[in-house]
């Protein structure tokens, strides 16, 4: 049972408990409290999803080549930044991957930043959300590896450059690949959780200056962690699709 229920979660539990229980029932997930199947992180994730949909619908309707608006400028800068970063880490044709990197970056950034708004909290400070994103990244870079290199060549790179060392390299590579989603999860979750806790601790002590400073720091960490997660995804994709090995 969650510690406290946000007002949005309370609304969801009041009006949408039935559909949530039915969906969870389809996957044979047993709910502890059928009257409260919605957790804060679920409703916050849905809210972020809705915000992103509305934002991009607005952006789409305003796109203009002759007179680009401020919103279009911002997202063009983000797009260029991600594309250049993907190129820097060694992806030679980054355009086709930027859709995933951009989605990931925007979603994590919004998830991280929504906690700054009073009465909301970051869904990324609950391990399930970063774990889901990390597993999606794990599936994505492996899929791209198989697609770009073919099944045999991609699997062969786990054996390393020297066939004699393959029995040693295969388990090492497997473990290091499986450690990646865990590493991505822990980093994002721990940073967001710690940032929130520090701000809350200072808010309990005083309402003056100190909480604002730590909230500012939390915003910086939110930006940085969204970037780190995306950049590491780029590095993994780059390693999966490179043809040298």
């Amino acid at each position: 049972m969650q510690e406290h229920e946000l007002w949005l979660t309370a609304l969801f539990n009041r009006f949408l408990a039935g559909p949530a229980n039915s969906i969870l029932g389809l996957f044979r997930v047993k709910v502890e409290d059928p009257a409260h199947p919605w957790a804060n992180w679920m409703t916050m994730e849905l809210l972020v999803f809705l915000i992103a949909i509305v934002l991009f619908a607005v952006l789409r309707s305003q796109l203009s080549v002759d007179k680009p608006g401020k919103l279009q400028h911002i997202f063009e800068v983000i797009y260029e930044f991600l594309r250049n970063n993907a190129e820097e880490v060694g992806i030679h044709h980054p355009t086709k991957f930027v859709a995933y990197f951009g989605t990931l970056f925007i979603f994590i950034l919004f998830c991280n930043l929504i906690g700054v708004i009073p009465t909301f909290e970051s869904p990324t400070m609950v391990p399930y959300v970063p774990a889901g994103l990390a597993l999606a990244t794990f599936a994505y870079y492996n899929f791209q590896g198989f697609r770009e290199q073919g099944v045999f060549r991609y699997l062969a790179h786990f054996a390393g450059p020297m066939p004699a060392l393959a029995p040693v390299m295969v388990p090492i590579e497997l473990v290091s690949h499986m450690a990646r989603p865990l590493s991505l999860t822990i980093r994002l979750f721990a940073n967001m959780f710690a940032g929130e806790q520090v701000t809350m601790a200072f808010l309990k002590l005083t309402f003056l200056v100190a909480p604002a400073i730590f909230m500012g720091l939390h915003v910086f960490v939110a930006l940085l962690q969204a970037y780190v997660f995306t950049l590491l995804t780029m590095i993994y994709v780059s390693a999966a699709i490179e043809h040298e090995h």
């Binding site: 880490v89 865990l182 590493s183 980093r187 940085l224 780190v228 950049l231 590491l232």
Partner: peptide, 20 residues
């Protein structure tokens, strides 16, 4: 930024690989 993010990534590499 790229270097910074890479080095932040290295921090959890060793403990997670050990745990996994």
């Amino acid at each position: 930024y790229l270097m910074l993010s890479r080095y932040i990534g290295l921090a959890t590499l060793l403990p997670t690989a050990t745990f996994v």
